[in-house]
């Protein structure tokens, strides 16, 4: 298994270095100018309907496109104290959705406590799951735990074939992912009438944009059922963000300039108006607040006078906060748009 950029001492482990590359002129207009031309600058939040909690960078995989630079060598995880601050903030609000991500969020010892507390508050809980974590001996009862608490599972599966999936996520990951999906299906996940939602995430395995969500969803449904007897509810297409390990790939393969131009050329004002940061609040492993998980990895915390830590949570000031944007934001505004819940428009 590969090491994180940080463990390898690579320059792109630094958020500042990523931002330096992204901000340099390279054949595409600055994102903020494009937004201004679409009358969307400055961008403001419209409320908070999703509290996305990133509980840390620890993961049992080292995927080639990971925007978190997560892996087994990353030790930054959310403490119980910070998790308690998240629940305290949640209890003050009626935010309906708690979206727990990582790394592999389940590897954080406070993950199950967070799920139980958020469910006790009556909130819908999402687990962003890499699937293989369900097969770890230490997580033998994880799938049952998720089902018991009616947690929605959003699972990464970039393609319905081993070659493409393993190229992105590591050797052998596809076969393990299928085994994990079968385990979830056996508990009722992905099946009508059970209330147990199993949604998959498609990321392009390379420097190109995702297909239309409805089209690739049909392909996935047909192929996964035919080849493996696996069923799921929805497929979300997510554009690869040009940061961290995917940025490393773009630069090493000579695709950076072309990819950025492709994203900028595909700028869609409707997608830009519906970006997820307008209704999401993202919490980092140390409690720092961000507009989204991508800004979190670029170490771009909330700004423009908004509170910067979960301990200072103030719903009124956060609901209409000004969003922090930069050139990586083209990743969410291209084509049909991209968010943690897939495409944001129909094309």
């Amino acid at each position: 298994m590969g090491q994180s950029l940080k463990a390898q001492g690579r320059p792109l482990a630094s958020a500042a270095e990523q931002l330096r590359i992204l901000s340099a002129p390279n054949g595409f207009p600055p994102f903020e100018r494009t937004m201004a031309e679409a009358n969307l600058f400055p961008l403001h939040a419209t409320g908070i309907t999703v509290l996305q909690i990133n509980v840390g960078k620890l993961c049992n995989q080292t995927c080639a496109h990971c925007h978190v630079d997560a892996g087994p060598d990353r030790k930054e995880i959310m403490s119980r104290e910070t998790a308690e601050l998240c629940i305290r903030a949640l209890a003050q609000t009626d935010i309906p959705v708690v979206d727990i991500t990582g790394g592999a969020p389940e590897l954080n010892p406070n993950f199950r406590w967070l799920v139980e507390q958020a469910r006790a508050l009556g909130r819908h809980v999402i687990d962003r799951c890499n699937l293989t974590v369900l097969l770890l001996p230490s997580q033998a009862d994880l799938a049952e735990f998720l089902a018991r608490h009616e947690v929605e599972v959003i699972a990464s599966l970039p393609y319905f074939r081993a070659a493409q999936t393993d190229a992105q996520r590591g050797p052998g990951v596809f076969d393990k992912s299928i085994e994990a999906l079968r385990k979830l299906n056996a508990l009722g996940y992905g099946k009508e009438g059970t209330g147990l939602l199993l949604n998959l995430v498609y990321n392009p395995v390379g420097a190109f944009l995702p297909p239309k969500q409805e089209a690739i969803e049909k392909q996935f449904q047909r192929e996964l059922e035919r080849q493996f007897g696996v069923v799921f509810n929805r497929l979300y297409t997510i554009t690869n963000m040009p940061i961290s390990r995917f940025l490393e790939f773009l630069l090493a393969s000579g695709n950076y300039e072309g990819y950025m131009q492709r994203l900028a050329n595909a700028f869609n004002p409707a997608a830009a108006a519906g970006v997820m940061c307008r209704y999401t609040l993202s919490v980092g492993w140390d409690g720092t607040l961000y507009d989204c998980d991508f800004n979190q990895m670029l170490e771009l915390p909330l700004s423009h006078g908004a509170p910067q830590h979960i301990r200072d949570f103030d719903a009124a000031r956060l609901h209409t906060r000004r969003i922090v944007t930069a050139n990586h934001c083209y990743g969410c505004t291209a084509g049909a748009g991209s968010s943690c819940a897939g495409a944001t428009t129909k094309t």
Binding site: R161, A163, Y202, P204, G206, F208, P211, A215, I216, Q219
Partner: peptide, 11 residues
């Protein structure tokens, strides 16, 4: 080639 990959086709 780009279009095929973007439409979800494989090699």
């Amino acid at each position: 080639t780009q279009a095929c990959l973007q439409q979800g086709s494989n090699i």
